[in-house]
Design a protein around this nucleic acid. Structure first.
Lengths: 365, 365
DNA sequence: CTGTTAGCGCGTTCAG
DNA sequence: CTGAACGCGCTAACAG
């Protein structure tokens, strides 16, 4: 019987033969039409498209991938999806990937090397064409397993060497300079900084951008106003508490990410200090929830959408050589978003149990 | 030459033939070994596993999918990934799916019917085995396109009829009753509710659970304390403002989701009222950021992880008939998480510009 | 410009 | 219990 198939009747899942039959052409012509090969007779193409439409046909991606060797799948490895930094990144990644005809495979490592291992395995098995590694940490085994399979990778900040690796540069300086100058203009001279964990490249970058910006305006930082945090709420709380306990805190605090800044807000709330009347606070990242804090948080924004766009384009450029006129530049800017957590510095230094302390005053009344 | 292949040397991407050759068996035996067919000679299996290990072989998912007709891909359609409700859901979905040997394809509709259309198209093209629709809205065309292709679907709350559809029930009542009783025990008698958009099934369910719980403790709700919101921050702000403007607000406010509750917090902050001293506030969903608000938000939790688990299992049960002893029950509980936005009711009703108003008092000093 | 044909890598009959 | 052969749906050569 040779090619005798059950699929002669209008099936739920029409294939290329069904289309060919209906359009009275060969499957090759259908294939060419779909793939926009220019040399197809317009009249036949017309028939093919019509058949495709009436059958509701769409090509089988698996079969396509099998024969072409390209899955049109892009991997996206992130640290932790519940970290508010990532959802927007994913959104952008999805949008840009789909625009370029790719689908995405997300997986999160939860900072667990073993999970990272699984992620890589999954990516490999699904035969992703490229992977964006947005974990802000350096992962040795990762590079090996994927690079060995000749899979293009893109990273943020860090730049391993290799023809298949791309890096997205982040211009931390610009936004951080804006933030420092914003505070200076308001009149702050006592500015503190809570960094991220300094083993992270991105955290070091932010800190040095801050130090530089401080230097630029002729200020010198008191060493005890430069503290290492850990990019978590708890870290922000405890460092701010330490600053408060020192008895001589700065009037403005900048942080290496928004969660830390929110921690600062919490510590200040507990200490019954007001923001921005007693302290100004500036975060970094401008995650969505920065708009929802009380007061809404002034923050240095790094466009997640831009970051995502760069990541997809970097991978695409590896996978589909672009016209020579195209000069890629994978760089994302940062900029200050002013909300209500920054204001003029307090006339007198804050002290716990001060009369300025609003809630306390009420509690006493 | 027949099957003369380039793949005779140790390639970067070993295939089943390479394994067969190294293990000195046929590809069929390799296939059986991988798929745990019991009738394989243990000695051969041993050799096969060893070969697999030394070559670093992993089966080609595309080819597998092509021949088996099953992609082991599950679709997950959500409204909006930046909505804090979803990241945790995705996390759980990913975990459970991977545990069951599935990969997931996420896509978000952004409440846009046209995007929804694209989502479906993408799912269809990638030949997903099943789809979880977690948008909390009813989507007509969706059902048709997917159901027509015989693809199992799972929904939350709503229950379309059909052998391929599953529904996950949410027991809103339990958690909401706990919340109402928590307030009652604290001494609140004046309890308001800000619902979600009432065209959403889930919003209506929450509201009716609230009304019922109020009735159970012998309270009757003042009609103007039952307001319709829209599940957004802005909605929460404006409804709370209206309540405040009425001159006779409740002492406790429950809301249909956390964003609304955060909006309430904002309105209260602007009105210079204190939480929980002047007003108690309870959210719903217990999204991650509920812990980070000032004060941390008391909220009714609906376990996203449990929801995700149910969704994956519901699909799996359709796809892989389970032993008859297995009786599935797709139901998720809700429960109250008490934080610091609830407390004893104020002795005297709140009034704007009251002496109780902390910040205002300070500003005047 | 179109149709025919040979695999892509694997699961699955069916003889042995 | 094992191996040879077929075909999943499609693209890419090649022949017409």
């Amino acid at each position: 019987m040779g090619r005798a198939k059950r699929n002669t009747s209008a099936s739920a899942r029409p294939d290329i033969h069904a289309v060919a039959r209906l359009a009275r052409v060969s499957i090759a012509t259908v294939s060419r039409t779909i793939n926009n090969v220019a040399t197809v007779d317009p009249r036949l193409a017309q028939r093919v498209w019509k058949a495709i439409d009436t059958l509701g046909y769409s090509p089988n991606t698996q079969a396509r991938a099998l024969v072409s060797g390209r899955s049109r799948l892009l991997g996206l490895i992130i640290s932790e999806i519940t970290n508010p930094f990532f959802p927007e990144l994913i959104q952008g990644f999805e949008d840009v990937a789909v625009q370029n005809g790719y689908e995405i495979l997300i997986s999160s490592t939860n900072y667990d090397p073993q999970r990272m291992e699984q992620c890589i395995q999954r990516m490999l098995e699904r035969k992703v064409d490229g992977v964006a590694v947005m974990t802000f940490g350096i992962e040795g085994p990762l590079l090996d397993r994927l690079a060995q399979r000749q899979i293009p990778l893109v990273f943020v900040d860090v730049a391993p060497n290799g023809p298949l690796f791309s890096t997205i540069e982040v211009d931390y300086r610009h936004g951080i300079r804006e933030a420092v100058q914003h505070l200076a203009v308001l009149g702050h001279r006592r500015i503190g900084f809570i960094s991220g964990p300094l083993h992270l490249h991105s955290a070091r970058e932010r800190q040095s951008a801050f130090l530089r910006a401080i230097g630029e305006i002729g200020l010198k930082l008191r060493p005890d106003w430069l503290q290492e945090g850990n990019h978590t709420l708890e870290g922000g709380i405890s460092v701010m508490q330490k600053l408060l306990d020192s008895g001589d805190p700065p009037t403005a605090i900048m942080t290496s990410n928004d969660m830390t800044a929110i921690g600062v807000l919490h510590a200040l709330y507990k200490a019954e200090a007001r923001v921005p009347e007693d302290f100004s606070v500036i975060g970094f990242d401008d995650v969505t929830i920065a708009q929802f804090t009380l007061p809404p948080l002034t923050s240095v924004q790094m466009s997640r959408h831009e970051l995502a766009r760069c990541a997809v384009l970097a991978l695409r450029d590896h996978l589909e050589p672009q016209p020579s006129s195209y000069v890629p530049r994978y760089k994302v800017q940062t900029k200050l978003i002013v909300r209500q957590s920054t204001g003029l510095p307090a006339a007198r230094p804050f002290r716990r149990g001060n009369s300025r302390n609003a809630r306390k005053a009420v509690a006493q009344s």
